[in-house]
């Protein structure tokens, strides 16, 4: 259990994090919410490739096969045993229900067997806490942009567990359109890293795609279905002409449009609330162009831009353990009737 006195004496509060919300089985041991002692991720990518996307039933089956060895590996790499732990943190939503259930069931059984407190972490909140693993000192209140394959939201974070959603996507998530465009271009799955790479050799000015909800209307909400349709139409027309696709230029122009919207809305939120820190979180936070442009745009606004190292941008259990540490300090323990919450939101944690 969390022990402030022990912590001051140099004892680290050790949390085992478990994350199975989508297609990665992950476990991690984190000390005091910031020192990553191990971070094990078992990727299922190769299992889903032949189906062209994640198959929920196959993801659930795979989680069950690997979860216990992944947990053992996380402990071994950290150099600890169950006896050293102070708590267990598990993702209980949002995500694929069958996938979540494997992690939640395993975590509850471990918590009971080992008499360890259990905390249930919102996966999206977990992404925010990836920034606590950077070594930077995080100070509330701050603004955070979460952009991933399932979510795109701008948040005002006032404290641990105190979130206000400033804007969210009205249709597709940013990561989702990257995946859809990559598929239309025959670039495989996931689409983000490939598009980011090809775009570096392309000229974005060759095509102009719409920027979503740039006007006052919609305020800080996002919409990516317009740019998605425009790019898909352009790909179709280019293909009809029978010439080779200008892959690099298409990728650059598409990425520019998405990044523009993300950066512009972020800047507006910063101008409006004037926080001292701005955090980037979620899989799309790995995008090089987004990081570069955010820095550039936010620099004059005197706000510190923080983003996690690449390995903590994508789904991982270290961020869940980090969030779990603060939940535990606040005494937010989960009961044994904890269920998976596939539709869990950010404002009702």
């Amino acid at each position: 259990m969390f022990d402030e006195k022990g912590e001051k004496m140099g004892h680290k509060t050790l949390i085992l994090g478990i994350e199975t919300s989508c297609d990665d089985t992950a476990a991690s041991v984190v000390g005091n919410g910031r020192d990553v002692l191990s971070n094990v991720v078992s990727s299922q990518e190769s299992f889903h490739q032949r189906f062209g996307g994640i198959v929920p039933e196959i993801a659930s089956r795979r989680h069950l096969e690997v979860i216990n060895p992944v947990i053992d590996e996380a402990l071994a790499k950290a150099g600890f045993t169950f006896a050293h732990l102070d708590g267990i943190a598990v993702t209980h939503g949002p995500g694929l229900v069958g996938s979540l259930l494997v992690g939640v069931s395993a975590a509850k059984a471990l918590s009971f067997s080992l008499d360890l407190p259990l905390v249930a972490v919102n996966h999206l909140e977990g992404h925010i806490y990836a920034n606590f693993l950077t070594g930077a000192t995080i100070a509330f209140p701050l603004i955070c942009l979460i952009a991933s394959g399932g979510h795109t939201s701008l948040l005002h974070v006032k404290g641990h567990g105190q979130l206000e959603v400033l804007g969210r996507t009205r249709d597709d998530a940013a990561g989702e359109v990257f995946d859809k465009i990559a598929r239309a271009l025959g670039l495989g799955f996931p689409g983000g890293p490939v598009i980011d790479q090809l775009a570096q050799q392309g000229e974005g000015e060759k095509f102009l795609f719409p920027r979503a909800l740039m006007g006052a209307e919609g305020k800080l909400d996002f919409s990516f279905s317009g740019v998605k349709t425009a790019v898909l139409n352009r790909i179709r027309r280019e293909k009809e002409q029978g010439k080779p696709l200008p892959l690099n230029d298409l990728c650059a122009a598409f990425q520019d449009a998405v990044v523009d919207a993300l950066v512009e809305k972020s800047a507006r939120a910063v101008e409006y609330l004037q926080p001292r820190q701005f955090l980037l979180a979620g899989g799309v936070a790995a995008n090089g162009e987004l990081r570069r442009r955010l820095r550039l745009r936010l620099a004059p606004l005197e706000v510190e831009v923080i983003y996690p190292p690449l390995e903590y941008c994508t789904d991982n259990a270290a961020m869940i353990a980090a969030a779990g540490y603060y939940y535990l300090r606040q005494g937010r323990l989960a009961p044994y009737d904890l269920n998976a919450e596939p539709g869990l939101d950010l404002e009702n944690p």
């Binding site: 169950f82 069931s105 067997s113």
Partner: peptide, 18 residues
């Protein structure tokens, strides 16, 4: 399928913990 996994993940978790 889901029921199988809830039971088995719990059993394996108990086995690992105990």
């Amino acid at each position: 399928f889901t029921g199988i996994r809830i039971g088995m993940a719990t059993a394996l978790g108990l086995s690992q913990g105990l």
